[in-house]
């Protein structure tokens, strides 16, 4: 992992990292068309050239923000574009900070990251900009329902 390029993001006030290989581009978010009856963590769809992107609110996708806490974190006017399973997504985050290199391997920390964060975390990674939580894109895009489903299945 050392030397890999990472995109550093702020999600819900925490420093997170995505592999730069996963981030296709960073765009200015235009108008977002909301999707009625879709899960709350899907903010809507927006257009990138002739492509429609599904806009994901990362804070809600992790399962952090309840409706009451709306506006607790700022939202960047830019979004990171990622692709997963043939679909393209735009990730809404607090801020897109920098591109930097990883300064170590992915590691775990004692005590974990907390239930919500653990679901989307691949682990902690040291970067040139300091330690960051490396986000598992697939888990993030599965949404908070995924973990709920697992819990229900286990119960």
């Amino acid at each position: 992992m050392t030397g890999d390029l990472l995109v550093i993001l702020q999600i819900a006030g925490r420093r997170c990292a995505l592999s730069a290989l996963e981030v296709k581009s960073v765009i200015e978010t235009g108008t977002i068309t909301p999707i009625p009856r879709a899960p709350a963590w899907i903010a809507g769809i927006t257009a990138l050239r002739s492509q429609a992107l599904t806009v994901i609110d990362c804070r809600r996708a992790i399962g952090l923000v309840s409706d009451a806490a709306d506006g607790e974190w700022p939202t960047d006017h830019r979004a990171a574009v990622v692709a997963e399973g043939g679909h393209s997504y735009a990730l809404l985050v607090d801020g897109i900070e920098d591109i930097t290199t990883a300064a170590g391997e992915v590691g775990q920390i004692p005590g974990g990251f907390g239930a919500e964060w653990s679901r989307v975390a691949r682990g902690m990674i040291e970067t040139m900009a300091g330690p960051a939580l490396l986000v598992d894109l697939g888990a993030l895009l599965a949404g908070p329902e995924a973990v709920r489903g697992e819990i229900e299945a286990a119960a």
């Binding site: 999707i35 009856r37 879709a38 899960p39 899907i42 769809i45 492509q51 429609a52 599904t54 895009l141």
Partner: peptide, 19 residues
Amino acid sequence: VKPLAPAVMKSGLYAGSTL
């Protein structure tokens, strides 16, 4: 018509998106 992300398709209300 372009396909939608699976999480949106799950609602069963939409068949795709278009510009």
